[in-house]
Amino acid sequence: MSDSPIILKVEGLSKYFGGIKAIDNVDIDIRQGEIVALIGPNGAGKTTFFNCLTGIYTPTAGDIYLSDPRNGKTTRLNGKKPNKITEIGMARTFQNIRLFPTMSVLENVMIGRHCRTKALIFGAVFRNKATRIEETQIIERSYELLKKIGLHRQVNEEARNLSYGAQRRLEIGRALATDPFLLLLDEPAAGMNPKETEALVALIREICAEGHSILLIEHDMKLVMSLSDRIFVMDYGKKIAQGTPEEVRENPAVIKAYLGEDVDA
């Protein structure tokens, strides 16, 4: 794995809110095909980190570089708008689920195809051939993705009527619809029962096997330890450790950060 190209490189990333250093000089890199976990106690700055990567916050200092393994193009993400970043090829899910609640399951995924399709007013009104083909492709591709995440029987259900676990899966499906090469998952297993978590692990493995790289924030240590190739640990906005699951497990700084929490759970 260590020989595959680096697709995300974060150097000295900092984000201050007034005097609070939510993220303080963090370096991270992710290689093509890896599953990397970002862990740390509550309030460590993990979600803020995600928000900086995806353009929702502008970082105070530092650089973020994203390289598309499909064409080798490298882009500096600082100051780019969230939609541009998604277009380049990094998609995310949200910790507190942010689906489009009154739109149908299928439409939620179809929205993900937005940045890969083109039709505007003209196409919509005249429904020319190109638009019709595009629309069919959007629907087919979305349906395929729904099959993969196991929601194809609920295509016309409103997203808000899904169970919690299904909503989390739908968020993953929606993010996948944007054709990302790097997928950021913010606590994908939160609120899931053990059976759902198991299915999620399988799904993440499958997504990874298809060539997507994954960066995930997670509190479920069992999931993190079994799934990740490498782990970064944050505490109080700083990166305090990194390495393979075994290395991180043994790291005294990590144990101290979690202070009494059962890291081996």
């Binding site: 708008k81 969230p82 949200f94 937005h114 940045c115 929606r174």
Partner: peptide, 8 residues
């Protein structure tokens, strides 16, 4: 916010 994250 979700929209932007979906590339819109």
């Amino acid at each position: 916010i979700a929209c932007e994250a979906m590339g819109i």
